[in-house]
Simulated scan of single mutants.
Amino acid sequence: MDACSRNVESNQTGLHERLDEVVQRHLAHRFRKPYQEHSLAAFKQLEQQVERAGKPLIFDSCCGVGASTARLAELHPEALVIGMDKSEHRLSRHHAHTPSEGENYLLLRVNLNDLWRLAEEAGWTLSHHYLLYPNPWPKSVHLQRRWHGSAVFPSLLALGGQLQMRSNWPLYLQEFARALELAGHSSSLQQINPERPITPFEEKYQASGQPLWRLDSDLSSLS
């Protein structure tokens, strides 16, 4: 494993000055962008798989190569874990990281801006939702590319469940915590040093000596 991973570099030194404005606007106005056809087809197939499984649902969003999805399936044998990423290339490398495939998880190439909204409209409620090392988009100009600055943020909240996020850039999680607060949800943020890395990114960041951070929030309740 290459231990030469650079720290996140950003022109921000604190919470984005427009964070509250952007989050509150998205909370007040529903995201109405038309769905992509491949997203609708993927969700229709996923609905059938979820119905057949008849288990609690866990989302592993931005799962990359899906190593985290396999690990979460081990930790939650009672559930169906759905790993999702927009990159077919990353998902195609899954078996290089996880030789044996479990029975209680699946991987899906999908646009999460569509999938989360479709799941919300279908009335799905998650038991857990993991966002492990998503792209933090550290440039200030890219606030609305971060999940908490995105128009789809309310759908993420509506899916409920125990939310866990991890990052090597604490400001990303501090902003997310503020966005949760604006939406009426409490959260906790702590530095972590996992004994067993849950993603290849986490392993790489640990090997580089970078501090790692974790945010937790119960989206099933309001503060």
Rank of each mutant, 00 (worst) to 15 (best):
L180G: 06
P138M: 07
W213I: 01
N7M: 14
H89K: 14
D85Q: 09
L15K: 12
G54F: 07
H129P: 05
L126Q: 02
N193S: 14
G161Y: 01
S208K: 05
A177T: 07
R178Y: 09
K139A: 12
S188V: 08
R25K: 12
D2M: 12
E17L: 15
L163C: 02
F153H: 00
Y133D: 00
Q191T: 10
D216F: 05
W147T: 10
H26E: 04
L143R: 07
G14L: 15
V65I: 08
A179R: 06
L132N: 08
Y133V: 01
S220T: 11
L15R: 12
L182H: 09
A119E: 08
S167N: 09
G64P: 03
I82Q: 00
E74R: 11
I198P: 02
H142A: 09
R109E: 13
V50W: 03
L112S: 00
H29T: 15
M84R: 03
W213G: 02
L115P: 02
G149H: 05
V50H: 01
Y172N: 11
A177G: 12
S39D: 00
Q144I: 11
A28Y: 10
P194I: 05
R145I: 02
E181C: 12
K86M: 15
P197E: 00
W124L: 12
A73I: 05
S140I: 06
K139T: 08
S5T: 14
A119Q: 09
S208M: 03
Q162V: 04
C62Q: 02
Q162W: 07
D2A: 14
S100D: 15
K33Q: 14
P200N: 03
R32M: 13
